[in-house]
């Protein structure tokens, strides 16, 4: 009997476990991971990969055609399109990533805190979140940006706060399920403080769910920053950003030139890749729940 309890080989460390996890992933998820890694590589090493500088005017001809010197031609000011595309990866992804992590932090901390404290404080925070969620995100962002002006810190703060409402909802709901369990009661009985309980007891148990939410929200944030830049109220020139690159070069589309669509396709591929990974994670989480 004792031998049959543990039939699976014990995980031999986090690295091996991660490796086995990746091997068990379906094709779409693996494809997604490869793409995410590729984007990360381009974003990190942008200055070394890009043939020209980010805001460097390299040609006197705006909207120049594709050539050996400028692989994707030049943009409306005669800057190298490919270089701006590569720097755009860095700017777009890093801003979306910072925003996501910030909102994840705010939302989850408040959510778990709310669930643990309960009572009137929980009610106040929840109603406030409900009020924030009852305005469509894009409209809210547009309104606040028009008041504070569109700078990158403003953009990050506004989107982070608005998105944290989603993290709050999901982490509060998940934490409520966990807080009623014995080991949390026991920790409370030991006299541990709330922060310790959230970090050590509640958080590890709701992490898989939160991680898939994290991936999904990253996509949403990434897409909404691109949309805002496209509308001309997001990231401002001369900084290269994929959404604003589409907008600035949109005139070419009516001439049948697909160059302006390349940044948009780049946005789409990253979002699709992340969604594929998230979809697999979500299936795993729900699968685990069914077994448990």
């Amino acid at each position: 009997m004792e031998q049959s309890i543990d039939t699976r080989p014990a995980p031999s460390g986090p690295l091996a476990r991660t490796y086995r996890l990746i091997c068990s992933a379906p094709f779409t998820a693996r494809l997604g991971m490869v793409f995410v890694a590729l984007y990360a590589f381009v974003a990190i090493f942008a200055p070394w990969i890009a043939p020209y500088g980010e805001a460097e005017v390299v040609s006197r001809i705006p909207f120049d055609a594709w050539s050996s010197q400028h692989l994707l031609g030049t943009d409306q000011l005669g800057r190298d399109f490919l270089s701006r595309l590569i720097f755009g990866a860095r700017n777009s992804i890093s801003i979306a990533l910072v925003t996501t992590i910030l909102s994840f932090g705010i939302g989850c901390l408040l959510g778990v805190f709310s669930a643990l404290v309960g009572g009137i404080i929980d009610q106040i925070i929840s109603r406030f979140v409900d009020a924030l969620m009852s305005v469509p995100d894009l409209i809210f962002i547009l309104m606040i940006l028009s008041i504070f002006g569109s700078s990158i810190p403003n953009l990050i703060m506004i989107i982070a706060v608005l998105t944290s409402t989603r993290f709050f909802r999901i982490s509060r709901a998940a934490a409520l399920n966990v807080t009623s369990l014995d080991f949390v009661e026991a920790a409370k009985g030991r006299g541990e403080n709330l922060l310790w309980i959230s970090v050590n007891e509640v958080f590890p148990n709701i992490l898989p769910l939160l991680l898939s939410e994290l991936g999904m929200r990253f996509c949403f944030i990434f897409l909404s920053i691109a949309a805002l830049s496209f509308l001309g109220v997001g990231i401002q020139p001369p900084m290269a950003e994929w959404g604003s690159m589409v907008r600035d070069n949109a005139a070419l589309i009516n001439m049948g030139d697909i160059t302006p669509l390349i940044p948009a396709v780049a946005i789409a591929f990253l979002a699709i890749a992340v969604n594929f990974v998230v979809d697999w994670l979500l299936n795993r989480v729900s699968g685990l729940n069914e077994e448990g």
């Binding site: 949309a227 959404g243 589409v246 302006p260 669509l261 948009a264 396709v265 789409a268 979002a271 594929f276």
Partner: peptide, 18 residues
């Protein structure tokens, strides 16, 4: 559909236009 919810709206719009 999973792929197309990841597309930015303006990409869909420009492809349709194109």
């Amino acid at each position: 559909t999973l792929a197309s919810i990841s597309l930015p709206e303006f990409l869909v719009a420009y492809i349709v236009m194109m």
